[in-house]
Simulated scan of single mutants.
Amino acid sequence: MTTAVEAWERYAEKAQPRRPTNAAGATTWLNWTQYADHGPDESALGELTGRRVLEMGSGSGSNLAHLATLGAICTGVDLAPSRTAAATARWGHLPSLEFVTADVIDYLATVTTVFDVIYSIFGAVWFTDPASLLPLVRRRMAPDGVFAFSHLPTAETCITSGRAISKWQYPAERWKQLLTAAGFDAVTAETIAAPTGGQQGTLWVRARRA
């Protein structure tokens, strides 16, 4: 039977590296959506200099590396060992940046670090039961810390379960309810329209630790 680690390793084999520069010529940047050079920038996360940032499902590490160049103290957690290795090889030279191979629930349950920002881009929030995840996220956040994530939008609650990977794809209003119940406030949830008509948008959610 395929394990979650094996499933993500297979996904990693097909992943393409991010291009060297974006349309503006930058070598690092933050991309919340599935489209290049699209969506909010890092200002959505608030002040970053000297702040502790955790990315859940850090993958290639490119988004987190950008935040490290802005002075954040960054940790990326990913379940696939090959993704951690690739991210470290590509971005490990940057100061205040580390990548860890771990299940995000196990990591949050054992780490003692308090984070100012926790985020996920098509990552662990999408693939982890919020009943287990959200209380742990809140516990590891500084007061008034920022929690943000993105995934594909849906009009209704959609929970899919496979042999190794399950997916929790909630609509905006349901995420607002879940986050409020878990002790977050200032919750916003919106669908960012795709850059070209007819394409699927991106659900983007932001909240603060109450």
Rank of each mutant, 00 (worst) to 15 (best):
M1R: 08
T2Q: 11
T2D: 11
V5I: 10
A7H: 15
A7L: 04
W8A: 08
W8R: 00
R10D: 14
A12N: 09
E13P: 03
K14C: 05
A15R: 12
Q16Y: 07
Q16G: 06
R18P: 06
R19M: 10
R19Y: 09
P20H: 15
G25L: 03
G25C: 02
T28G: 11
T28E: 12
T28H: 15
W29S: 14
D37N: 05
D41F: 13
E42L: 06
S43Q: 12
A44Q: 14
A44F: 14
L45Q: 09
E47C: 05
L48P: 12
L48D: 09
G50P: 03
R51V: 11
R52G: 11
R52Q: 14
V53N: 13
G59C: 03
N63A: 02
L64Q: 00
L64F: 03
C74L: 05
V77K: 01
V77N: 00
P81H: 05
R83D: 08
R83E: 14
R83V: 08
A87P: 03
T88W: 03
T88M: 07
A89V: 01
V100G: 04
T101I: 00
D103Y: 08
V104D: 11
D106Y: 10
D116K: 02
I118L: 15
Y119W: 13
Y119N: 13
Y119C: 11
I121P: 06
I121M: 09
F122C: 08
G123Q: 01
G123P: 10
D129S: 00
D129H: 01
P130K: 00
P130W: 01
A131I: 11
S132V: 13
L133W: 03
L134E: 02
P135I: 00
L136H: 06
R139P: 05
P143G: 10
F147V: 05
A148E: 03
F149W: 02
S150M: 05
S150T: 05
H151N: 05
P153R: 01
T157Y: 10
I159Q: 03
S161K: 14
G162A: 09
R163V: 15
R163T: 14
A164I: 02
P171F: 05
P171M: 02
R174A: 10
R174T: 14
W175D: 06
K176P: 09
Q177L: 13
A182S: 10
G183M: 11
F184P: 02
T188K: 05
A194F: 15
P195Q: 00
P195C: 04
G197P: 14
Q199W: 13
G201D: 09
G201I: 00
L203W: 00
V205R: 00
R206L: 04
R209K: 15
R209P: 07
